[in-house]
Design a protein around this nucleic acid. Sequence first.
DNA 1: GCATTCAATACTGAATACAAGACTGAACGC
DNA 2: GCGTTCAGTCTTGTATTCAGTATTGAATGC
Lengths: 234, 234
Amino acid sequence: MNSQAGINLDISSDSIVDRVYEQLKAMAISYEFKPGERLNEGELAKRLGVSRTPLREALNRLNTEGFLRFTPGKGFFCRELDAHEIFDLYELRKSLEIASVRLAIKRAKDEDIDALLAFLQATGPDPGERSSVELVELDETFHERLMAMSGNAEMLRVLRNVNARIRFVRWIDMDRINRSNTQAEHRAVVEGLKARDEETCVTVLEKHIDRRLDRITSAIKEGYAQIYMPAARG
Amino acid sequence: MNSQAGINLDISSDSIVDRVYEQLKAMAISYEFKPGERLNEGELAKRLGVSRTPLREALNRLNTEGFLRFTPGKGFFCRELDAHEIFDLYELRKSLEIASVRLAIKRAKDEDIDALLAFLQATGPDPGERSSVELVELDETFHERLMAMSGNAEMLRVLRNVNARIRFVRWIDMDRINRSNTQAEHRAVVEGLKARDEETCVTVLEKHIDRRLDRITSAIKEGYAQIYMPAARG
DNA sequence: GCATTCAATACTGAATACAAGACTGAACGC
DNA sequence: GCGTTCAGTCTTGTATTCAGTATTGAATGC
């Protein structure tokens, strides 16, 4: 049985494909491409300073991961900002997290739980002003570490994919979230985990995610506004 | 709100990449490649009668979907028959199915439920002898249709990926499954769904999947045997 | 004035060619 | 005899090229 801490899906490499992949993913996540826009391979390749071959490999990866859409004979398209899809992804995330915390209650090592508490402690006070992007990153890290304690690498893999795909919406969403509330809920989940109290964990987590789910519709509307204001990104 | 029946992730095309992708996936699923084996791109390309370019696109897809492993500078490798990974996938599947049936109870249309019952009726009697492969296919179809009734396309997408990755193990597993038992359990879930009885659905489904989970370890051992007996596949 | 068709252009799909890096085997030194 | 190093070969990584197809725009006919 491998340790929870041993789960690591990182693949670090510096090949051109990987670099292009990361660049494109960042672009796709931040909707630097307009929803529905077709991506011109030649132009993109020139812009990124690579040939079409590695570019297409990267585009294909992003397609299978759901960041882009591909139509044979037509090419790659930026995905639409589909409210239903975002909703589905949130629902998927909720299901995964609740299932994983149930597993974590049985499997998590006390030292890992304490480490997560320490992480919350360290990142909690919110010194000065954190950007929305940073807050989402911290939030994702917390939830991924929580899931890692389930010991299930496949669930973690899916969660990471989901998180990346809903990240843009969350950037907007995070602006209006009560940060200290979030912090308290996170702590409550981990405390519940430490006490091996399944009901508390599941209940808090469920509400915690549901609260965000409620705001999605309006967040998406704001999303559209932000997408069409390139000034915000420079 | 789009209909449950409207969910369709099929992308049918006849491009070389798609064809090669399907061929490779079939090969990967059936472990025609030996676990851990490195795939020689040039040789594979020649064997499949295509150039390396579309082959690599297909290989990349399979890598992101977890059917193959890729190491930069080294190439593509057949995934190991990892008991822990299979276990994780089963656990993921169980989590997804239980979550989705809860959603289906709220959302499924009676006509869709009846259609699924009809499907069970039609495929139930098991005329003559069905092969293990066919049984798995029927089983997957049932579970995917059940999940489609949750209305969540993303969960369905993940389930399909999971199913494909554990298919090989299930072929072996299915041999020793009590078919009429399975049939009865499937029916019980759908009946529970029709009655909007969450507890019944979840309980039956949980046991249904757990029962398979129990056999995985031994199934994997047999799997190794079958992998190294190419005669069985011709 | 509008629709339809044809041609030109541009883009994707795939193959080939070339470069860079990894592995293998032998030979040399310790 | 064993280890290390170097060279040759093989494989992957990327670019370029060519072919096929879709789209767009203009011109002609109704």
